[in-house]
Design a protein around this nucleic acid. Structure first.
Length: 243
DNA sequence: TTGTGATCATCT
DNA sequence: AGATGATCACAA
């Protein structure tokens, strides 16, 4: 996905302006490094690291997120833990339009369909990932060439008590349906701030699970997503306070 | 195969 | 326009 330049511009991690693939030691350092990306374009950042910018994201949907991860030294890989394990921080890029409005929902984590029945909120993947997030807004208007899109001002976010209540209420409602084996009733329409949507390589993907009674059946893999309205609220609150 | 990074494509 | 369901690439 992150294709290296064949022309050997700067060797990644050696000559670039940014500390590619190097773990930040603490929150202050992570913040400083995230802020150093603010205002530059994806093309500039990619060139610094010696990466090729895809002409379009259709076949490179996670390219922006992976680029920012490498630049900031995220180390969790594809494990189901926060991107900066030692700091407990999850990194999320957020595509925004010219008004700072999120263009897409935000994927949070996949759902362990077979284990969801006896899970608890405080131990959940969802709560674990959302307890501390570093949001990095990035211009995402489709008509803007990927290389020209600018990285925005990063912000650290911890959900307020009110936001936790909203998330937890949705999470419990959706988990209950899943635990009862009523996954057929789950659509993206449910949930005020959180929703459950397919998360699979193809629509026909299936994964084995069971309901409270232990009955086995196959269901489409699903994941939790934050609604754009919710993430928009996070950005608005932050930027209204910082002005 | 599952979980990560997400955006695409289409319908209302 | 906004949102839902579908889909793409990669790592372990």
């Amino acid at each position: 996905m992150l294709t290296h330049s064949q022309t050997e511009s700067p060797t990644p991690g050696e000559r670039g302006r940014f500390l590619w693939n190097q773990k930040p030691g603490d929150l202050i350092e992570l913040e400083a490094r995230a802020e150093s990306l603010s205002g530059i374009t994806l093309g500039q950042l990619a060139q610094d690291g010696g990466y090729i910018v895809p002409a379009e994201l259709r076949r490179a949907k996670g390219w922006v997120g992976t680029l920012i991860e490498k630049a900031l030294g995220a180390s969790a890989g594809s494990r189901a833990i926060p991107d900066f394990p030692q700091l407990g921080v999850e990194l999320k890029t957020l595509p925004i339009d010219q008004n700072g409005k999120p263009l897409e929902s935000t994927f949070v984590c996949s759902i362990e369909l077979s284990k969801i029945a006896d899970s608890e909120w405080l131990e959940s993947r969802l709560f674990g990932k959302l307890s501390h997030v570093l949001w990095v807004p990035v211009e995402g208007t489709r008509s803007l060439p990927v290389a020209e899109r600018r990285i925005g001002t990063p912000l650290f976010w911890r959900p307020t008590d009110e936001e936790v209540d909203l998330l937890r209420a949705d999470w419990e409602q959706l988990c209950l349906l899943i635990a009862q084996g009523r996954t057929g009733e789950i659509t993206g329409h449910l949930g005020q701030v959180l929703q459950v949507r397919p998360k699979a390589a193809r629509g026909s993907s299936r994964r084995r699970t069971s309901d409270e009674e232990g009955a086995l059946y196959d269901e489409q893999p699903k994941g939790f997503y934050l609604r754009p309205r919710f993430t928009h609220g996070i950005l608005q609150r932050y930027f209204s306070l910082s002005c």
